[in-house]
Amino acid sequence: MPRSLASFLALCLMLLGFALPAAAFETRARAAWVYDLTTGTVLMDKNAETPLPPASMSKLMTLNMLFEALRDGRVTLDTRFSVSTRAKNMGGSTMFLNETDRPTVEELIQGIIVLSGNDACVVVAEGLAGTEDNFARLMNDRAKVLGLDNSTFANASGWPNPGQRMSVHDLGRLAVRFITEFPEYYGYFGQHEFPYDNRAPQNRYNRNPLLKLGIGADGLKTGHTEEAGYGLVGSATQGTRRIVFVISGLGTDAERAQESERIVNWAFRQFAEKPVAEKGHEFARAQVWMGDQTEVGLVAAEDVSVLLPGSQLEGVTGEVVYTGPFEAPITQGDTLADLVIKREGLPEAHIPLVADRSVARGGLAPRLRTAFLVLKDKLEGQTGLAVSE
């Protein structure tokens, strides 16, 4: 018989304490994407799939190509690249490279992240692909593989070009990729300054306004052009949680700094990760056909935690959803059902539930019993029902 798990989940969460209501957040950014990496929860999505001018935030894709080359062994951090006249003549933010320089890959990484060097980006592009045009084609090919469906590239630096577009979601995907797949290089994004050869003492500081605020920020990249406005791809950790966010289209440098800090504070203060159940907790039992047992328990495969808005800590509801009955054999640990938890203003949380035991295929008696039940259910029109408990 269907039954609600609301009372059980509400009781679990009420025992954990309360928080202030999660206030609705209205960002001034043209586009924004905020993601709780720890729980895989999207907290904000405003025009997140719209391709927009990314400015220097698209340098993240150039860095991705370089990190992949490091991972594949095509270059090392000590590999030196030559500097072309074209690279030297790049305008905008710069490392102040010239044709006599032979910067290492590590210096170029720091020059791109900390100094936002357009010249460094061209050096990387030419060093990996021969020309920047070839590199842009490789960037586009790689973007398709990575699922960056709303991104196109015409250059390595983010220099204004109608063919240079990225969505804030795609930028966020790259940030998550760096954190999860290239942790050995992620520390460069939190570097406060890089006085390359002391060539421009006033241009040695990281432009990320959050790094010095003591709120757990440790990356990633700013961007600004007249067309794009002011933007930031950022990440921060507090306690056991990490968030990633992207904002674009702010009007001033100060507005970008304020909005970034507001988003970080909102994401950490208005949501909390709360435990729901321990590994092995049984949420429901399901009928088994053709087995040496007639039921199997549906249990949590691991400790269950969900991210919740503070306003919902008293009234969480959930359902166990599956299509049953299940036919034996069943192996302990097989995923059989979902625990679906509804959250205010957030996507539903889907938590897999697994079989608590193995159920072998039964002998003659279970098969006869199953045949009878199948016939009965067919007559009643109930075979293969999706079940919510």
Rank of each mutant, 00 (worst) to 15 (best):
D334H: 07
V288D: 02
A337C: 11
G333Y: 11
L339F: 01
R242A: 14
L346T: 06
H281Y: 15
Q258Y: 14
S305P: 04
Q270L: 04
T331R: 12
G239C: 11
E273R: 13
D338F: 07
I247T: 06
V244L: 10
F271P: 03
L313V: 10
A272V: 14
Q293S: 14
K274C: 09
G318N: 01
V340Q: 00
Q238F: 05
D338V: 04
R256Y: 11
P329H: 04
P309F: 05
P347E: 15
G249M: 07
V246L: 09
I330Q: 02
S235T: 15
F245H: 11
T331G: 02
R256P: 12
I330H: 02
V306G: 00
G297H: 06
S260D: 06
V246S: 04
E261M: 13
G291I: 02
K279L: 02
G251S: 15
T237M: 13
V244Y: 08
A267G: 07
P309S: 09
A284H: 10
A328D: 13
R241S: 14
E348Y: 08
W289Q: 10
Y322Q: 07
T331H: 09
F271R: 01
R256N: 14
W266A: 05
V244K: 10
D303E: 15
P275M: 10
E261A: 10
K274P: 00
V306C: 01
V299R: 00
L307N: 03
G333R: 07
L339E: 01
Y322S: 12
E348P: 05
P347D: 15
S260C: 09
Q312V: 04
Q287N: 12
A284V: 04
L346R: 03
R262W: 05
T331P: 02
V288C: 08
A236V: 12
Q332E: 15
A284W: 02
V264M: 09
V299N: 02
T323C: 12
E255Q: 13
Q293A: 15
W266N: 06
S305W: 03
M290F: 14
E259A: 03
L308K: 00
A284R: 01
V304H: 00
D338N: 13
E259L: 03
G249C: 08
L339R: 00
G234C: 08
P325G: 09
G333S: 11
L307F: 11
G297E: 13
Q312C: 06
P325D: 06
T294K: 09
V299T: 10
I247E: 02
E302W: 05
A301C: 07
G249R: 03
G345P: 04
V320P: 00
G280L: 07
V321Y: 03
D303C: 02
E278H: 13
F271D: 05
F283S: 03
D292M: 04
M290H: 11
T335K: 11
G310C: 08
V321G: 04
G324F: 05
E282I: 11
E327C: 13
T240S: 15
L308C: 06
R343D: 07
